[in-house]
């Protein structure tokens, strides 16, 4: 297993021993040793199908592959970083919240639901699957993990959503009440409602 280590709460330190990671383009802030950086394209190294799907949906994740021997430090916009170890399961994540994924993990695009019942416009998120570590970004402070269960449905501001896992039913709710709350000229006019069983990660700052 690769070692993802935090240096403070906003810098990720990755030790490369001849292996590789994929990281958000431009997120490398320093390195030592012999490390090569190569564009992994919009598809995140998952082949053309994923790339085409991304272009069609607007959900894009521009990644670079970092390989070699040495230490690389990653950070982005002074956001807080959380490291999650996947063990064969799937995480749905907002693509711009992805900092680094282990090369052993697969990234893809998944249908996330319809944006409002009337518009019929589809929404998509990035999924990360496999076994290995990944680092997520959270703006404005540490991410908050919130449990969803049949007893506790959750409503989230789409701009604060970071990631989710579990058996969740995700719906985009457009109502007058939420629009009042969002205010004029800013933010999304719909809220994200989660039912089922799982965990939702949110950040304290709206994108």
């Amino acid at each position: 297993m690769q070692s993802f280590r935090l240096n403070g709460s906003r810098v990720l330190e990755v030790e490369l021993r001849g292996d590789a990671v994929r990281a958000a383009s431009g997120a490398m802030i320093a390195y030592t040793g012999d490390v090569a950086f190569k564009s992994a394209g919009m598809g995140g190294g998952d082949g053309i199908r994923a790339a085409i799907k991304r272009r069609a949906t607007g959900e894009s994740v521009s990644l670079m592959r970092c390989s070699g021997k040495g230490t690389v430090w990653f950070a982005k916009d002074a956001m807080e970083i959380v490291v999650i170890d996947l063990a064969g399961d799937t995480l749905k994540v907002e693509s711009e919240q992805l900092l680094v994924v282990s090369d052993s993990l697969r990234t893809d695009v998944a249908f996330a639901g319809l944006r409002g019942a009337s518009s019929g416009q589809g929404l998509f998120t990035t999924t990360v699957t496999g076994s290995g570590p990944l680092a997520l970004l959270s703006a404005g402070g540490p991410p908050i993990a919130l449990e969803v269960s049949p007893q506790y449905p959750l409503v989230v501001d789409p701009q604060a959503f970071v990631a989710s896992r579990g058996q969740l039913n995700q719906t985009f709710v457009t109502d007058v009440s939420w629009r009042n709350l969002v205010g004029e000229g800013s933010g999304e006019a719909f809220s994200l409602r989660f039912d089922g069983t799982g965990v939702v990660y949110i950040q304290p700052e709206e994108r």
């Binding site: 810098v11 431009g26 320093a30 950070a75 982005k76």
Partner: peptide, 9 residues
Amino acid sequence: TVYVQASEQ
């Protein structure tokens, strides 16, 4: 020692 920040801004 080199000092770096956690951002490209």
